[in-house]
Amino acid sequence: MELQTLQLERSGGIATITLNRPDKGNAISMLMVRELERLCRQLDDEATDRIVVFRGSGETFCSGIDLLDFPPDEKPDVRGFSRWERACRTIERLPMVTIAAIDGECAGGGMQLALTCDARVATNRSFYHLHEVRDGFLPGMGTFRLAKFIGLGRARFFGMTGRRMQAAEAEILGVIDHLCAASDLDEAVKTTVAAFGDIHPDAIELVRRLFDESFEIAYENFLGCFLAAQNRAIQTDAFKSLIKRAHEQGKTRPRSL
């Protein structure tokens, strides 16, 4: 697949997707949205990678939506936003672990991209802001995701003022999972990849979905969802071989192979 706004590198089961518009602050253009969605579908279909890492080229992660995609003389419509949200949802549902590796500015749509991932690794010079409300529009479905990370009160303040959140603060608030020095981002990504180990794709899909839905569903309904999901998980060969090892080793929690 020929890519103009993204770069793809694959090695050792890790696919690294780099937002590659360095002269535009890696801003999200409509072409990038289409390429992101196409690329993620390709990775999903091929199912050869177990980790997908998103990063920005140069010293910026992503400066947000590219407003140059709105023609100046036409009535703006929401189709582009709808496409972008669909791309985010595709990323959020990839059957592999997703990691955002963030250096420098992470703004608007870029922050949304980071929040769709399973983990965020960032340099201590990275910073975060939702500038949209100050500019007179909305921070996408970041309105749906951010409060789940940092709480409603902080999300409102942060989203309405557009104030910058520095890396250290982002780590305390739970936006960043692993903070590192600017020169150590590659190493920090490796550490995070190792932390995930080998997760079964079914388990990724199910646990991610349940955590997501825990904000939306009443306990009584959620319990049934959990049992349905757990029943699927325990029918996998992975679980069956775990049980076999437990009995072989006589241990309640057997060593992995």
Partner: peptide, 13 residues
């Protein structure tokens, strides 16, 4: 029924 719909939701995704 609720349980079987859940089972289909989480198995098909």
């Amino acid at each position: 029924g609720k349980k079987v719909i859940d089972a289909i939701k989480y198995n098909i995704g």
